[in-house]
Design a protein around this nucleic acid. Structure first.
Lengths: 342, 342
DNA sequence: ACGTTAACTGTTATCGTTAACACTACAACA
DNA sequence: TGTTGTAGTGTTAACGATAACAGTTAACGT
């Protein structure tokens, strides 16, 4: 009774075999009503609690998947985590999180630190650049799915379709007559921001327009405000008529800077953000935004990871890596208008 | 080689005993350089990966703690989770999260669903009211810490000192000459909001002032905007000169409503929120706010839980439940001014 | 030469659970 | 009456790792 009671303790108390107790505990096999009741009583008396480690050792699975990310407070990551947790719990899996630090800048390190955890599979949210993405290819012990825009040799990858979403926004602005479309990127070490920036430049080129890349922000509204103040001058000069910001927070800051400069949205300048994250928390902000469908990405990440984990347990080999992109949607709320006449 | 390689496989490959391989793997005991190298090579060759379940079974611990919460996207919960994850990882523990659903409205159910997870202890973030808080007292198999304002018989509890924080805000407004101080509560099933509401009423009473409780908001800025619109009329009538909102998001909505109604902060009306959450994300919002120090709460929750887990493993008994309150701070940014003269 | 010590390595038993199989009744059937 | 089936129960052997103990060398001092 001292520490945790085991099957053996219950069996002794009830005068039956361990196996019978196990059968009662798991509702498997045939056990007579009388025995069942006797065992239940004994379980209760000795305070039986199943030992998860022993179960996991026998079964070979923890019913848990791990999630590694750098910053849990970032808007996108919360959405992802929420989607992952929901999808996992629907499949009877729990989610273990690990916050990565500055020392975890390689896939090898991430994999090593996660392998020490009781998890059956790993989802890595690669918001910052990991340096060994191309070279890392050794056989993985734990199946891994990486949320990142580019395909990787050794495991499945998945992301919002940053390129398609960016094109969607640029095209929408262009179809409204805009040609001087500025882009406000996020931090330089953000993979998502870099991908959006690259897609922006490419699509501007494809439309025969000159890219107008602004200073790098740091995802916060304050940085958006700073950059927006500089942008306001260009808008007044006519050098810029529309702005695409790498996330909603910065777009909000830009909006405030424009408002303070006396510029009206969408009459004087059009604005689009990314994340579709502010509609609930900020009233009267009619900001067009690209929705990345984080919940769906989380769901598919869980799907890929569990599929790989099960395949590896059955066959000993992981399945062929997949690369999926989830299309973005443009949510229109009125912050984009026709090109202003001067 | 099929599935995961074990110590035995490595031992066979290297021509040594399992125990020697174990010693190499864990860097314990003396092993000669030659043997060590041989074993390392064999490990690499067969792709050895330590089995966490077996380790946990022997050790009797998972090095993991569980966190149960209803809504991971809520501002306060993200801060808490961040604090918990950081504190846990500093102690070499991982964090497993479980999102509670509407069916998890009793401690008994929460405990049962968490007991199935590979965790050594549980932190329950009780943002919504659990109905069996008083009656639930049976001996816990897994040590549990609840983040809630009131003490519980069966396990340790911890929270921001909602009452002290609320008094701090009310007193500050009062000391600035305000008497008509309104309170905007959050959802009715929020424990934190109810505690703040109660403390507000009590302190207003203690100061000889009449409480002015407004409609319940739902934590969002939009609900704050709605309530703020109604409040603006009372402010203009002189029926209200200061507002305490149950969180920053609603305070932000109220601010917007006041701005639209032509009321200036702090000249015409004073405003205080709770969470200290918006300073980074919304530029130019000079909102006074109560800081709940979530990171500190998370740290202490981990501390209490691990202490209980270790004690229970050593002695078989959990330690005496503790109840801690972490004081709030009022962060001043200029949204509170002296009582306006009419 | 003998005992002593230290360095290294192997053997055994065990953590709590469950799969696989073996056994005992007793009922159902020819 | 004997055969077969089946519900109910027990026995054994793993899962992978490690603590505790038991050897085996070789070096050293007397």
């Amino acid at each position: 009774m001292g520490l945790n009671a085991s099957l053996a303790d219950v069996a002794r108390e009830a005068g039956v075999s361990q196996q019978t107790v196990s059968r009662v505990a798991n509702d498997t096999g045939q056990v007579s009503q009388a025995t069942r009741a006797k065992v239940r009583a004994a379980m209760h008396k000795v305070g039986y609690r199943p030992n998860y480690a022993a179960k996991a050792l026998r079964r070979g699975t923890f019913q848990t998947i791990g999630v590694a990310m750098f910053d849990i407070t970032a808007t996108g990551n919360i959405g992802l985590l929420d989607g992952i947790a929901e999808a996992a719990s629907r499949q009877g899996y729990a989610v273990t999180i690990r916050i990565l630090g500055d020392e975890d800048r390689t896939l090898a390190r991430v994999e090593k630190s996660m392998a020490r955890l009781p998890v059956d599979g790993i989802i890595v949210v690669m918001e910052r650049l990991l340096t060994d993405l191309d070279t890392f290819s050794r056989r993985l012990n734990t199946p891994m799915t990486i949320i990142t825009p580019a395909a990787v040799r050794s495991c499945s990858t998945l992301d919002a379709d940053q390129a398609q979403g960016t094109r969607l926004a640029v095209d929408y602005l262009h179809s409204n007559g805009h040609a001087a479309i500025a882009f406000v990127p996020g931090p330089e070490d953000s993979v998502a921001s870099q991908t959006r920036l690259h897609a922006y430049e490419q699509q501007m080129g494809a439309l025969g327009l000159a890219p107008l890349v602004q200073d790098h922000g740091d995802w916060t509204a304050n940085s958006g405000y700073r950059i927006g103040t500089a942008l306001a001058r260009q808008v007044r000069d006519g050098g810029v008529t529309a702005v695409l910001a790498a996330n909603d927070n910065m777009a909000n800051g830009i909006w405030q800077a424009f408002a303070r400069a006396g510029l009206r949205i969408p009459q004087d300048v059009s604005l689009i953000g990314v994340d579709n994250s502010l509609s609930e928390s900020i009233p009267n902000l009619r900001l067009d935004s690209l929705d990345q469908h984080f919940t769906e990405i989380g769901r598919q990440a869980v799907d890929l990871t569990l599929r790989a984990a099960r395949a590896q347990q059955r066959t000993g080999r992981p399945p062929r890596p997949e690369h999926r992109l989830v299309p973005m949607d443009l949510v229109r709320r009125g912050s984009v208008g026709p090109m202003p006449r001067r």
